[in-house]
């Protein structure tokens, strides 16, 4: 059912280079969060710190009442069993076939028979759309397939928390959309807590329940998607909503002086663009961790810009969503 992760005052540096400091956030159980930040801001470092591959200088990571940042080696190995991690390029074991890669955690950690293992592996491979590629080696398949195989391997022990590093790097928009849909569907099915780390603004705007923005060694803001997408905070505005000057290429991060210079010249980020509807699971379903569109805005008295929550087929999700929910409830009855 997903586990909550509470990060408190986390700081990490390598030697004298501070990567980020005093990061505090809560990944709500069963929800999808996205951590957005330009390349080199330490997103991968954050992810690796969350699973205890790197030890932070200061701070806490609370999971199930244990502090993963300051626990014993044995406890750490135990807590890691809650995680499934999809590394940037899949991190498949190069000498093993896709089948053996995905079977690996089962063979290591369970006493299941080969036929049980086969059944689970095939089920996960089907889930990520890789049936038929079982005997391929990681070197023989495309980057998108490697990521999906890495995802299948991360899912095989039924993790409560799924961490994903840059699912969109090196993929074209069509494959990125497919993978994003897969995350949303998996979250619907398994209700695991998701953290997706990315520099892709479109993914950050449409996929998550919560968004965090990592910039200049700090977590600038973390909260519900609608809160960040309607925020006046200049940096958030600039990164998530900048319109008039086009979205900033997140890979070539503008530095503070540039941002300040722009502000002084009166190049304010302009009018808030419409808030896009959130990516829905396939099959007319609703995710358990999901909030109705506009709920946060309404609760905080914020009027969304014209054209918000309208998808590319012209459906208005402020109306569509309640219809879906009631149809769903009727269906259940």
């Amino acid at each position: 059912m997903g586990v909550e992760v509470v990060v408190e005052g986390l700081t990490k540096s390598f030697g004298r280079q501070v990567i980020w400091q005093d990061v505090s956030l809560t990944l709500p159980a069963g929800e999808i969060s996205v951590l957005l930040g330009p390349s080199g801001t330490g997103k991968s470092v954050f992810l690796k710190t969350l699973v205890g591959l790197l030890r932070p200088d200061r701070g806490h990571i609370w999971i199930d009442g244990y502090d993963l940042a300051n626990c014993s080696e044995d406890k750490l190995y135990e807590l890691r069993r809650l995680f499934g991690v999809l590394f940037q390029d899949g991190a498949l074991f190069g000498s093993l076939s896709l089948f053996d890669n995905i079977a690996f955690p089962l063979r290591e950690h369970t006493k299941k028979s080969e036929s049980q293992i086969r059944q689970i592996v095939m089920e996960k491979m089907e889930l990520v759309g890789l049936l038929g590629a079982e005997s391929k080696l990681p070197g023989e398949i495309s980057g998108g397939m490697r990521k999906r195989a890495g995802l299948a391997r991360a899912l095989v022990l039924d993790p409560e928390i799924i961490l994903v590093d840059e699912p969109d790097s090196g993929l074209d928009p069509v494959r990125t959309a497919y993978l994003n849909q897969l995350f949303v569907d998996l979250n619907t099915d398994f209700e695991a807590t998701f953290l997706i780390v990315t520099h892709d603004i479109n993914t950050a705007r449409t996929v998550p329940d919560d968004i965090g923005l990592l910039f200049r060694r700090e977590l600038v803001m973390f909260g519900p998607r609608e809160m960040l997408l309607s925020s006046d905070e200049p940096v958030v505005r600039q990164f998530l909503n900048a319109r008039r000057h086009g979205p900033i290429g997140m890979s070539e991060e503008k530095d503070v002086s540039e941002l300040e210079a722009e502000a002084q010249l009166g190049h304010d980020p302009g009018a808030l663009p419409p808030i896009p509807p959130q990516l829905m699971p396939t099959g007319n379903r609703v995710r358990r961790g999901q909030q109705p569109p506009g709920a946060w805005l309404a609760a905080h008295g914020v009027i969304p810009p014209q054209g918000s929550f309208i998808d590319d087929r012209g459906r208005n999700w402020l109306e569509e969503y309640p219809r879906l929910v009631s149809a769903h409830l009727n269906g259940v009855r």
Partner: peptide, 17 residues
Amino acid sequence: GARKIREEIDALEVLGI
């Protein structure tokens, strides 16, 4: 080294190995 930079080593550790 190749396994390290492909994050295979990290993946092993996350899988409890």
